[in-house]
Design a binder for these strands. Sequence first.
DNA 1: GATATATAAGATACAAGAGTCTTAAATCTG
DNA 2: CAGATTTAAGACTCTTGTATCTTATATATC
Lengths: 144, 144
Amino acid sequence: MLFSKGCTYAIRASLLVTTKEIKDGRKFIPIRELSDELDLSFHFLTKIMQVLTEAKIMESFRGPNGGVGLARPAREITLIDVIAAVDGLDLFSECALGLPGCGEKTPCPLHAAWAKRREDLHRMFEKTTLAGLAKELELNALRH
Amino acid sequence: MLFSKGCTYAIRASLLVTTKEIKDGRKFIPIRELSDELDLSFHFLTKIMQVLTEAKIMESFRGPNGGVGLARPAREITLIDVIAAVDGLDLFSECALGLPGCGEKTPCPLHAAWAKRREDLHRMFEKTTLAGLAKELELNALRH
DNA sequence: GATATATAAGATACAAGAGTCTTAAATCTG
DNA sequence: CAGATTTAAGACTCTTGTATCTTATATATC
Ligand code: SF4
Ligand code: SF4
């Protein structure tokens, strides 16, 4: 898999929080509500949301009417932010073969082809904001 | 990581076998020689080469002067063959978010962008043959 | 203040990946 | 045939990722 389970959960949950914030105008969404709708473990999602909170992508609030919400406007949060917080960015800097000490100076024969696509992927996730995804989701009634 | 450790070892070892076959004209290379030069565990590499042998990518021969060698001409073995044998091709058919039952009919908002790059990656590994890599390696004195 | 609701934090359990080791079978050489 | 070499097969260990569970802590409502 390209991303860890936790990372994909983080993306899906962030997107759901975004749509709920935009559509219903709510500031904090309980994690239980998210885990129910996304059909995944509440406890596991809790831990992941804690990571996003620590990374200043989410804000949290305890007690009744508490939950998690975006710490910044949805158009300022990119998928790279979420990926970096959960999985790190090794995928976009390390290489397909993972040779020790590899790089531009001493490349393996796969380097040119892989590095190009690696950077393209990085740019793609960097340009994709939660606001953009939420908008696309609403326009086309896509799944989440 | 994009590929498992075993898969990257498989690629590196296949490539080394290819260059040895081409340059030295040897049919079988002992796995110990490969593991020594690639600086990785002999026993682990043995297990991986067994997978490649089972997949008809390599041929093996026991006893003195034995070892492993390419089962087909190097220009007919692609990286996709090696990847498919060790890691499988899920990476190129599954999606970034791994939603259950996802696909063209009910796509998530990431689908279009990801599917395009996923197929591009698949094509890249499909077009890359061991012979091509070995040639590039020799021409430019690249690492392996 | 008492109680219910929610996240925070960390202990624990389970599964999968990565790596090691041992024994068996095949092959060559002398 | 005897002994050395080399892969085959599988048991075993260690580490990491995934998931669950329990106990704290903060907050709101009454
Ligand atoms: S040279 Fe490039 S492609 Fe090759 S192992 Fe290093 S980073 Fe990866
Ligand atoms: S719709 Fe496409 S991008 Fe979205 S989860 Fe499914 S395969 Fe992946």
